[in-house]
């Protein structure tokens, strides 16, 4: 049993959980994730370890409720426990000193990006952060990322905060400015966003790292359900990733495989009591 110590709401349906998991807190490196099995008979849900405190033996998770299982997790109050948490899983972020890097976060992906951005800044990179979201309430962690970023650029689709538009608009501006053009880009967010960032950076030959989020079960290389295609080769995202060179990722395949259980998952949400349905964010695909 893994006790939830804190659970607060950062953005609509996006929660920050601090959970007691001493072994994971000690072993974890930036870029790695855990698999949470909230209760007996539930699904196994991969979530990035956003932060960890090895002394206190705690890890921090940012969770967006997008379906019945993530809702179980965001609905766990402090003092209650999550049944199983396994990790840390996946490869750690390959942290190098690139010089100038841009970190691009979309929606809850911003939370996944946070530990990478911090590690990149700690390694001496000059970090510029771009955060994108639907509207102002969905922009998360701007202050926290600001602590180590040279600048934080915000874009919203409706213009309610920062510049109106998409993260790619802000990225284009940076690339066009010789003094701010990055040597590497880290992008985490909805698949269409990561794809758009990669398409934008490709002609400039700027190394672009993305963090992929296929459907997983075990997270240890045992099932192959998480397979993605990288430069035409099949890889298991849970052990070979989750981070890959974005210019080699087959995004169309990833998006398509994410829809595999759409009908069944939708039925689970339909079966929820009305009062809970509002606590789920519909993700676009």
């Amino acid at each position: 049993m893994f006790e939830v110590l804190e659970n607060d709401t950062l953005a609509p349906n996006v929660h920050r959980l601090v959970v007691r998991a001493p072994r994971i807190a000690k072993a974890r490196k930036p870029g790695q994730f855990v698999i949470v099995h909230p209760q007996k008979g539930g699904e196994r849900i991969p979530l990035t370890i956003a932060d960890a405190d090895p002394e206190d033996g705690t890890i921090t998770l940012f969770v967006q409720a997008i379906g019945a299982s993530t809702l179980k997790i965001t609905g766990t109050p402090p003092g209650s426990s999550l049944l199983d948490i396994a990790g840390p899983l996946g490869k750690e972020t390959d942290i190098e000193n690139w010089g100038r890097v841009v970190c691009v976060g979309g929606g809850v992906g911003t939370a996944v990006l946070y530990p990478q951005a911090k590690a990149l800044a700690d390694a001496g990179n000059e970090v510029t952060t771009i955060i994108g979201g639907r509207s102002a309430p969905f922009i998360i962690l701007a202050e926290e990322l600001g602590r180590f970023s040279r600048e934080v650029l915000i874009t919203t689709e409706d213009g309610s905060l920062g510049k109106q538009g998409f993260v790619t608009n802000a990225l284009q501006e940076l690339i066009d400015d010789p003094l701010r053009c990055p040597q590497a880009i880290f992008a985490v967010g909805p698949v269409p966003m990561m794809r758009a960032v990669c398409e934008l950076s490709r002609p400039y030959g700027i190394k672009t790292i993305v963090s992929l989020n296929p459907i997983m079960i075990d997270g240890t290389g045992m099932c192959g359900g998480c397979r993605v295609s990288i430069a035409g080769e099949t890889k298991f995202a849970c052990v070979d990733g989750p981070e890959f060179d974005g210019h080699q990722v087959d995004f169309a395949l990833l998006m398509d495989r994410l829809t595999m259980y759409r009908d069944q998952e939708a039925r689970l949400v339909e079966d929820l009591p009305e009062s809970l349905k509002g606590k789920i964010t519909k993700v676009k695909k």
């Binding site: 699904e43 079960i217 075990d218 099932c223 359900g225």
Partner: peptide, 18 residues
Amino acid sequence: NLKGVFSANEYLTRVNLM
């Protein structure tokens, strides 16, 4: 990698363990 193609491990794990 088409949808509906499983490894036996995934297929059986979904059904048995999960």
